[in-house]
């Protein structure tokens, strides 16, 4: 075997190993709750995209705002057309890092993810406590956080202000598989 062939095979194996260090979740779940004395609003998005890169322990999340499913269609309409304006801002994204994360650990790790969440054109720095589980090589990330509606420049008419909580509870759960293009 020539030296060039050996070098080529080595480069291919290194590139392949790096590629396999990426994980993807195509059907991540993000849900949010708004609790008020007037009404409770709950919505769920079950097709949230997330990619983890073990080369630098970074995590990226992207979701379509109009993929949120509500209990009532009218809530979905108000959410997309009046509040989130999903025709102008179709996606929300998060980009961050899993701090002090050990991909080789087989135990459930409680870690902090630090990054920037962008929704409705507004960026918000977040630090979120998450559980990272490695179940025989199948990674999952789950957690929850609270965020303030006023951080996202969402215009709520005074008449409806009592229907929507000032602080929204967000829950998320991602199950990852090896990344493939």
């Amino acid at each position: 075997m020539s030296r060039i062939t050996i070098i080529f095979l080595f480069v291919c194996s290194v590139l392949s190993a790096q590629e396999s260090k990426k994980l993807i979740a195509r059907q991540g779940q993000v849900s949010f709750f708004s609790y008020t004395s007037v009404e409770n609003i709950k919505a769920e998005n079950n097709q949230v995209l997330s990619i983890i890169d073990f080369n630098n322990n970074s995590i990226a999340v992207s979701m379509l705002m109009n993929a949120f499913v509500f209990e009532k269609a009218l809530m979905r309409e108000h959410f997309n057309e009046s509040y989130i304006e999903s025709d102008i801002y179709p996606t929300a994204t998060f980009e961050g890092d899993i701090l002090d994360f050990d991909p080789n650990s087989k135990t459930i790790q409680t870690k902090i993810i630090k990054g920037v969440f962008e929704m409705h054109g507004q960026k918000e720095e977040l630090e979120i406590k998450v559980k990272v589980a490695n179940n025989n090589g199948v990674f999952s990330v789950s957690g929850s956080f609270e965020t303030l509606v006023k951080s996202y420049d969402i215009n709520i008419p005074p008449l409806l202000a009592g229907n929507i909580a000032k602080s929204i509870e967000v829950n998320f759960k991602f199950e990852y598989e090896p990344y493939e293009n």
Binding site: I24, R26, Q47, L49, L64, A67, V69, T91
Partner: peptide, 11 residues
């Protein structure tokens, strides 16, 4: 059709 991220999403 809901939209497209990496993949197309249909509900």
């Amino acid at each position: 059709l809901v939209g497209t991220l990496k993949d197309v999403i249909v509900h």
